[in-house]
Design a protein around this nucleic acid. Structure first.
Length: 344
DNA sequence: CCGCCGCGGCGGGTTACTTCA
DNA sequence: CGTGAAGTAACCCGCCGCGGC
């Protein structure tokens, strides 16, 4: 599945918001970005400085589909590089009532990937708007915990483990003791999954979408915004890695080609010295074998065109197949004639 | 019409924290 | 149990576009 990222239509609603209940069992959502050529990476940086990077990717993908280069596909879905918090095989959305019962198995909360809902606070405001109102004037780091309103965890009445309690308690005390401490709060796996879904719909948010998402997830709009910024950064980083890998392969290929050509040149020089007759032949120009479309070196001598080739295996073949022995130029001519004869 | 200003969004970079091997 | 690496939430800064004046 190939999904072109599109940022253009910010007015487009999140489709999945309407169909969230259907998402339950399907984690197999391909999220691929097309990469036509690696070269665009450097070029686009200036040209698109004020465009969204992902919009440019989208354009490049369209271009790449036109070109003959097979696009590199970067799978950016949670499946691979995405954190352990996404290991669950099913996306469950606790705000959907039919999911409640299976949200978190009892007794599993101390294991890895427990979906530690650090944002959830015992005293919950009624709405995300209230949460936002509470948080709005406080963008300072120490405001985070106190402003988080997570009516999000409905599993087992809210608390999933003693560890959660301890962590929250620690945070609360930290906040009280150290007002300048920046708290980093993990989003739950459900929140992350939902944000991931929305990112696939739109990699950027308009204010409406941001608010809607924040409300859905009981996060502050600022958190949603930050999450999307970071997510775009991660995507770009991954794409850069893919670009680098592609360029690396290109470099290796070219190095190999260069090595091969050097050897070929060496062989030809050796041939030239061993058979001085050919030294009298005129200067050569590059042309292409009309049949196999490989580059050949053509030497024009008055009326007759004799051809040697960079792909001198052709010539060697012609030399071997034609007795008495032909010189390489005649052999190349024979080679081309053979192609023409075969085509006719 | 033009310039200025405030606002908001974004990218890039960084920091601080969490989790895991 | 301590530690380093990786992942990521949150922040800061600068730039730009846009709308209002």
């Amino acid at each position: 599945m190939e999904l072109a990222l599109s940022l253009g239509d910010a007015s487009k609603p999140f489709l999945f918001l309407d169909k969230a209940p259907k998402m339950g069992g399907n984690m197999d959502i391909g999220f691929c970005m097309g990469l036509g050529t690696a070269a665009f990476s450097a070029a686009r940086s200036d040209e698109s400085s004020r465009k969204s990077t992902y919009e440019v990717y989208d354009q490049e993908e369209r271009r790449s589909r036109i070109s003959s280069d097979p696009p590199l596909q970067l799978n950016l879905l949670p499946s691979a590089p995405v954190p352990r918090s996404h290991v669950s095989s099913q996306l469950r959305f606790p705000w959907l009532t039919d999911n409640l019962a299976v949200s978190e198995p009892a007794g599993s909360s101390d294991g890895p990937g427990i979906g530690l809902d650090v944002n959830r606070m015992p005293g919950v405001l009624a709405s995300a708007e209230e949460a936002e109102d509470a948080a709005a004037p406080l963008s300072s780091p120490n405001s985070t915990v106190s402003s988080f309103q997570m009516d999000f965890g409905m599993r087992n009445g809210g608390r999933s483990s003693k560890r959660d309690l301890d962590v929250d308690a620690d945070r609360a005390s930290d906040d009280e003791e150290n007002g300048s401490t920046r708290k980093k709060l993990r989003l739950s796996k459900d929140q992350s999954a939902f944000l991931e879904e929305s990112f696939k719909e739109h990699s950027t948010l308009n204010p409406k979408q941001k608010l809607a998402l924040a409300k859905q997830l009981n996060l502050r709009p600022r958190q949603v915004e930050v999450w999307f910024q970071n997510r775009r950064a991660r995507t770009k980083l991954k794409q850069t890695e893919v670009d680098c890998e592609y360029l690396k392969r290109c470099c290796e290929t070219l190095t190999e080609e260069n090595r091969r050509l050097q050897k070929e040149l060496q062989d030809l020089r050796a041939l030239k010295t061993s058979q001085p007759f050919y030294m009298q032949l005129p200067a050569t120009t590059l042309t292409m074998c009309p049949s196999c479309e490989r580059v050949v070196t053509t030497a024009s001598a008055n009326t007759s065109t004799t051809t040697t080739t960079n792909h001198h295996h052709h010539i060697k073949s012609a030399l071997n197949n034609n007795k008495p022995r032909l010189n390489p130029f005649t052999a190349a001519q024979v080679h081309i004639q053979q192609h023409q004869g075969a085509a006719a």
